[in-house]
């Protein structure tokens, strides 16, 4: 069964995730600990990986940002057919996408990969895609996506969530409704609660 939630429903996933070929990489260590999060903006993808990435010939494809930036011309006809989505990881430089493609709405889907639950950069990235770069098609979170992020993801502009394979998407749907009236304005509802509702009538004794 599908583990994909889009627009508050479990739906089947008709996108094929395109990934970069794995390379043997030295594990970087810092202060005796394995680095779990790549430093911001660190370029860890080689030209060789990008060139060797296998792009399926047909169907809807979710292409890594780096591959898209380098091989954009081969994808032009498929973009016109609405067959190309873009995915990026939280440590990648988001601005490189709008810099290369001022109209992000040529993509029916943008997906953000979060390696670990605790990585809250995904929320700022979602917010920027919606509010700064005007993306208004499907925005998906995938990776270490569990139900307790969903409310925050939704408020940060996401409307699609691929729940980690070992968890139930059905149960996760519950968490989209965790809070009925959040305080602050965010992407899904830009008005803070005091502009959304009339709070002044709740008088002080």
């Amino acid at each position: 069964m599908s583990n994909l939630i889009t627009q508050n429903e479990i739906v089947s996933d008709d996108w094929t995730l395109v990934t970069l070929p794995k390379v043997d990489q030295e594990v970087r260590k810092q202060a005796g600990k394995v680095v779990l999060f790549k430093l911001t903006g660190e370029n860890t993808i080689s030209a060789e990986q990008i060139a060797n990435t296998q792009i399926p010939a047909t169907g809807k494809i979710l292409v890594p940002l780096s591959v898209y930036l380098a091989r954009k011309s081969e994808l032009a006809t498929r973009i016109a057919k609405q067959e190309v989505g873009i995915w990026l990881a939280t440590h990648e430089v988001l601005e490189s996408l709008p810099n290369a493609e001022p109209d992000l709405n040529i993509f029916p889907l943008i997906a953000v990969y979060v390696e670990r639950f605790a990585d809250g950069r995904i929320f700022s990235i979602g917010n920027l895609l919606r509010t700064r770069y005007g993306f208004n098609h499907t925005l998906r979170a995938f990776g270490d996506v569990l139900r307790d992020q969903l409310f925050f993801l939704k408020r940060s502009g996401f409307d699609s969530y691929l729940i980690r394979a070992d968890r139930s998407a059905q149960e996760a749907l519950q968490s989209l409704k965790d809070f009925s009236q959040p305080y602050q304005g965010a992407v899904d509802d830009k008005q803070p609660v005091w502009r959304r509702l009339n709070r002044s009538q709740n008088n002080v004794a």
Partner: peptide, 14 residues
């Protein structure tokens, strides 16, 4: 306090 409570963008800071 109210603004920061469950602020969605800043729920999981460094």
């Amino acid at each position: 306090r109210q603004w920061s409570t469950f602020h969605p963008e800043f729920a999981l800071l460094p």
